[in-house]
């Protein structure tokens, strides 16, 4: 686990004071409360604004994602957490009207600099989507897709090994090793999602973004995925968007609470769910809205 990264000189985390907010109105909300900056940051986001045409979806978000941590992003639907996640590997580029401002860096490298190749970025920052989306190919081909396009395997044996390893890491190997060449779309929903995870880790990304990966799955499949996330967190940095607070509580180290496009609070998960700093967070986790 020796990552050759040029650790950015960290500015001392800004002291933020909890401001009493009596209403749920956030338009006057300026700063995020809690520990939104980390010392061993893998990714750093500063003053990020995202617009769809004229509509602003993300307002001035600044947060760090630390190395090998699992950070959960929660919030009511439409709060912009998915949009924010998608700007971390520039998937928002595929939406014509979407515009990202501010600074997003990984290992100190600006992700939105014109010099950066988005292909390389996405190989380093993998993504798992809300609905399992295996390609209409065989299980093997699904996992081999990334290594093939990036030219990671030098031989067939290499490729076989990568596929097996990835499927093993995704906890799917035992279930599918007999039918690697059957269509990936024939698997159950939970298996499909784990296949998508296997597909993502086959290129050994540094960060994995997960956009509500369990929302389309039943509880048993969800439990398996959550287990898997925990295992993966030993090797990967993971950012997960979820609308299930229990899930955030179970899998994440830190939790970020989004509200109407603003990042309200970031704190260690335990703290967020036991004694949230901000009133809005508290209102959300106690079920006053969401």
């Amino acid at each position: 686990m020796t990552q050759a990264i040029t650790a950015e000189k960290k500015k001392p985390a800004k002291k933020t004071t909890a401001k009493a907010v009596n209403s749920l109105d956030v338009s006057d909300h300026k700063a995020t409360v809690g520990k939104n900056f980390a010392d061993n940051a893998k990714m750093t986001m500063r003053n990020v604004n995202v617009f769809y045409d004229d509509k602003q979806a993300i307002h001035d978000v600044s947060v760090d994602i630390a190395k090998n941590e699992v950070i959960a992003m929660i919030g009511p639907s439409g709060c912009g957490k998915s949009t924010f996640l998608r700007s971390l590997n520039r998937m928002n580029d595929t939406v014509d009207i979407c515009r990202v401002e501010g600074q997003i860096c990984m290992d100190g490298e600006d992700l939105y600099s014109p010099k950066l190749d988005v292909v390389e970025l996405r190989a380093r920052v993998g993504m798992v989507f809300q609905k399992p989306n295996p390609f209409p190919k065989s299980i093997y081909e699904n996992v081999a897709y990334g290594p093939k396009i990036h030219g990671l395997a030098d031989s067939r044996v290499d490729l076989d090994e990568i596929v097996e390893n990835s499927l093993r890491k995704a906890g799917l190997w035992e279930e599918v090793k007999e039918r690697l060449h059957q269509a990936g779309t024939g698997l159950s929903g939970g298996q499909q999602q784990r296949l998508c995870i296997a597909r993502a880790i086959a290129v050994s990304p540094e960060v994995i973004l997960m956009d509500e990966p369990c929302s389309a799955l039943d509880p048993i499949a969800t439990a398996k995925i959550e287990e898997l996330i925990e295992e993966l967190s030993q090797n990967f940095t993971i950012a997960i968007v979820t609308h299930s607070m229990q899930q955030a509580a179970r899998v994440s180290h830190r939790t970020a609470y989004f509200h109407l496009g603003r990042l309200i609070e970031v704190n260690p998960t335990e703290q967020v769910f036991t004694m949230p700093e901000h009133q809005l967070t508290e209102a959300y986790i106690t079920g006053r809205f969401g």
């Binding site: 998937m91 996405r122 380093r124 993998g126 989507f129 897709y145 396009i149 998508c196 993502a200 290129v203």
Partner: peptide, 11 residues
């Protein structure tokens, strides 16, 4: 979602 899946892989 097919396009997203592939693009997110870095294709």
């Amino acid at each position: 979602s097919m396009r997203d899946g592939s693009l997110a892989m870095g294709a």
